[in-house]
């Protein structure tokens, strides 16, 4: 058996965030401060329905805030990251780096 003293980074992964599209939404919203629905759809290469489903998951988890409004006659949906979303993104990136480091570092523990 391999002795493990600390938990594996994968055990701390948040299932809501640990997904390509949702991580992408959080990353863009973090970098842009505020992002429009159409920008996300274009850059994540998604259909409107698919993007809406992912946004609903993130909004239900309290990671993003969705604001609907108008610019002239055109409806616009703006997405912003909540403080919980910022924390979730930071944690996810840290976990991913830990996972990669763990894979790339030669194993030092010995089987007994």
């Amino acid at each position: 058996m391999t002795s493990v003293t600390s938990s594996h980074p994968a055990q701390g992964l948040d299932e809501v965030v640990h997904q390509r599209v949702r991580l992408g939404i959080l990353t863009i919203a973090h970098e842009a401060r505020r992002v429009e629905f159409g920008y996300l759809r274009t850059h994540l290469d998604l259909t409107a329905g698919n993007l809406s489903k992912h946004l609903s998951v993130l909004e239900a988890a309290g990671l993003i805030a969705v604001e609907k409004g108008y610019e002239g006659r055109r409806g616009r949906t703006w997405i912003t990251l909540t403080p919980a979303g910022t924390t979730a993104l930071t944690d996810e990136i840290a976990r991913l780096k830990q996972l990669i480091a763990r894979v790339e570092t030669p194993t030092t523990t010995t089987d007994r």
Binding site: A10, H18, Q19, G24, T27, H43, I93
Partner: peptide, 30 residues
């Protein structure tokens, strides 16, 4: 067990690379 199965979509290297590429694209667009 110390290894958890991660779906292909959740490959850490790919996820991190995608996130960095998206962040870079946003900065360029700004």
């Amino acid at each position: 067990m110390t290894t958890n199965s991660i779906p292909a979509d959740g490959d850490p290297r790919r996820l991190l690379a995608d996130a960095r590429a998206l962040a870079r694209q946003v900065r360029i667009d700004q």
